[in-house]
C-alpha cells in the first residue's frame, strides 16, 4: 500500500460521496456546494495522473466559473426544497434502476479483470501533462478545433444574452 493508493482512495471516496450528495439532496444549494467539492476531488485525481495543467483548469473553469453561474441562478430563482412525488415507483425510476444495474455489472466485470498489481505511469506522462507541451500540441496539431471552440464560445455568449433578454425587439 503506497502513498499513491492512499491519495487515490481518499480522493475517489470523497468524489463518489459528494456526487451522491449532489444528486440526492433536496436543497439545490447543498447540491451545488457538494458538486464544487466533487470538482476539487477530480482536480486532485488529475494531479495523481500527472496532469497539472488540467487540474488547474478544472478548478478555474468548473469550480470557479461554471459553479458560480449555477449558484447565481439558484439564488436568483429562490428555489425551495424539491417536493416528493406522489407515486413511489414511477417509470423513470425503473429505467434509472435498470441503467444502474447494467453499469454496476459492467464495472464489476472490469474489477474482475484487474490484473496488473504494480502499475507504473510512463515517464513521458510527466512531460505530457505540462502546460508547455499541451500548448505546443494545441497550437500546431489541433489548431482548427481550437479555433472552432472559440467560435462555439462566441455563439454561446450571444445565445445566452439573447435567451435571457426580456423581449425580442
Amino acid at each position: 500500500m503506497s502513498l499513491s493508493y492512499l491519495f487515490f482512495i481518499v480522493l475517489g471516496v470523497l468524489a463518489i460521496a459528494s456526487a451522491i450528495v449532489t444528486i440526492a439532496h433536496k436543497n439545490p444549494i447543498v447540491s451545488a456546494m457538494s458538486l464544487v467539492l466533487h470538482f476539487f476531488m477530480l482536480a486532485g485525481l488529475y494531479l495523481t495522473l500527472n496532469a497539472q495543467f488540467l487540474a488547474v483548469i478544472q478548478v478555474l473553469v468548473y469550480a470557479g466559473a461554471i459553479m458560480v453561474l449555477v449558484v447565481f441562478v439558484i439564488m436568483l430563482l429562490n428555489l425551495s426544497d424539491e417536493a416528493q412525488l406522489k407515486e413511489k415507483l414511477n417509470f423513470r425510476k425503473i429505467i434509472a434502476a435498470f441503467f444502474a444495474l447494467g453499469l454496476i455489472t459492467q464495472f464489476t466485470t472490469m474489477y474482475m479483470g484487474v490484473s496488473s498489481k504494480n502499475a507504473f505511469l510512463p515517464p513521458q506522462s510527466i512531460e505530457a501533462g505540462k502546460a508547455q507541451s499541451i500548448g505546443k500540441e494545441l497550437f500546431s496539431h489541433y489548431l482548427v478545433p481550437f479555433e472552432a471552440i472559440s467560435l462555439l464560445l462566441v455563439v454561446a455568449i450571444i445565445g445566452a444574452i439573447v435567451l435571457s433578454k426580456r423581449r425580442y425587439e
Partner: peptide
Amino acid sequence: IDVPQEYYLILSAMMFVIGSVGVLTRRNAI
C-alpha cells in the same frame, strides 16, 4: 508504484452511473 488504470476506469464508471441516475430521477432542471 502507481494505481492501476482499471481503478480509475471503475471510479469513472461509478461517477457516470451516479450522473445518469441523477438525470433520470430528479425533476429540478438545475
